[in-house]
């Protein structure tokens, strides 16, 4: 019983299997050639926009944004004193907002003042709102 013998005896099975494989190949490649253009999402931009959204979607950070808005510019001490937060926590959240580019810092002597980047905020909210509007349809 050599290998040749095996092929000879099982010829029809082997052929069937190969026809199946070829048919499967065409089935999968045909749709591939018909597909629409690939939607590319730039990874770097995805990271940037995820950071912005993550920074915004947080109740306490929203409260901090609201508080800075009410006061135009403000230093960290006043933020944590008024909102009754721990300084370390406040600084942590401000850092996240700053890295997302939503708040700007200005140094004035030994104080660091925080203010909102309104252009960035309104640009972000416009993009988010129009995205979510499409979702309803």
């Amino acid at each position: 019983m050599g290998l040749q013998h095996f092929f000879y005896n099982n010829f029809d099975k082997i052929i069937n299997w190969r026809i199946f494989a070829i048919a499967h190949y065409f089935k999968t490649t045909k749709v591939t050639s018909m597909r629409k253009a690939k939607v590319n999402i730039n990874d770097e931009k995805l990271q940037v926009s995820s950071e912005i959204l993550r920074a915004l979607a947080h109740p306490l950070r929203m409260k901090i944004l609201e508080f800075i808005d009410e006061n135009d510019t403000i230093n960290v001490n006043k933020i944590y004193n008024t909102l009754k937060l721990e300084q370390s926590i406040t600084s942590q959240h401000l850092r996240i907002l700053r890295l997302a580019g939503l708040v700007i810092t200005e140094r004035d002597g030994k104080f660091i003042h925080y203010k909102l980047d309104y252009d960035k905020l309104s640009n972000a909210m416009e993009a988010i709102d129009s995205f979510l509007e499409q979702e309803v349809n």
Partner: peptide, 27 residues
């Protein structure tokens, strides 16, 4: 929350923001 001191008012809604976060997190 509504931010009032910009050129126009900016409204941020937590539930809405969460929806967008989940979409970006998914991909």
């Amino acid at each position: 929350i509504v931010l009032k001191k910009g050129k126009q008012e900016i409204q941020l809604d937590y539930a809405e923001l969460r929806k967008a976060v989940l979409v970006l997190r998914a991909i």
